[in-house]
């Protein structure tokens, strides 16, 4: 069954008088429980594509289906609710909340997004901290963690809400090669254990090899699978 489906998706950006076509007639079908990578040179439209799938941005034309729902016509509020219920995000810059500890960062989506009662939170948070190997660091603040550790916390935060799909835009771009590899391994392991679908973008060819399915973007066009 397909989890993500894009039909004739085009995305234009307008800068003053000029139009930039970031994506051109994208047709895409991603099955559940897959581990997908999107590659392409800088400016090829990777971020734009992930934003559309992640209900963070809307296409100029075409349709986007995620988990069987047409997400391209969502209002801001509907999109936020959908993201909170079904999607997880991992960012290039980790984007942990600096005033919260590791534990609290993982707790945040459970409190503020999914309203999980306090009693049920702790076990889940500890489970995911354990899974990403960050239990010892649970009381540290992001500023006290290394890049690899931060991204592990971010993985735990993305997964703690039990999402169907995790989107990661260049999750390893700010990490050295060995660490990047470990983070991708962690994501892969999670994907196998939890049956969650992962889509990540990168332009590191060695990392790409870890993916099961690889889409290549070039100048806004999907050139190969």
């Amino acid at each position: 069954m397909s989890l993500v489906e894009l039909k004739q998706v085009t995305k234009d950006y307008q800068i003053g008088e000029m139009f930039v076509r970031a994506l051109k007639n994208i047709e895409l079908d991603i099955k559940e429980q897959s581990f997908v990578s999107i590659v392409g040179p800088s400016g090829s439209g990777k971020t734009t594509l992930l934003n559309l799938i992640g209900c963070i941005d809307k296409p100029s034309s075409g349709e986007v289906f995620v988990n069987g729902t047409a997400v391209n016509s969502f209002s801001n509020k509907e999109a936020a609710r959908f993201r909170g219920q079904h999607l997880g995000f991992i960012f290039q810059n980790f984007n942990l909340l600096p005033v919260l500890t590791t534990y609290e960062n993982v707790e945040y989506p459970l409190i503020m997004v999914q309203n999980i009662p306090a009693g049920k939170r702790r076990e889940r948070i500890m489970h995911y901290l354990e899974a990403v190997g960050m239990i010892d660091q649970k009381d540290k603040y992001p500023s006290q963690l290394s890049g690899g550790q931060k991204q592990r916390v971010a993985v735990a935060r993305a997964l703690v809400t039990d999402p169907k799909l995790v989107l990661a835009d260049e999750p390893t771009a700010n990490l050295d090669h060995a660490t990047a590899f470990k983070v991708i391994e962690l994501m892969k392991q999670m994907q196998q254990n939890l049956k969650t679908t992962f889509i990540f973008s990168t332009h590191d060819p060695k990392i790409v090899k870890e993916a099961e399915i690889i889409y290549t973007l070039e100048d806004g066009k999907l050139v190969s699978k």
Binding site: I56, R81, F82, G84, N95, Y108, M112, V113
Partner: peptide
């Protein structure tokens, strides 16, 4: 701004 972007992307409702 980027923190707001983060919590918003994660699914925090605008009203929250």
């Amino acid at each position: 701004v980027s923190e707001i972007g983060t919590i918003s992307a994660i699914g925090t409702l605008p009203s929250k």
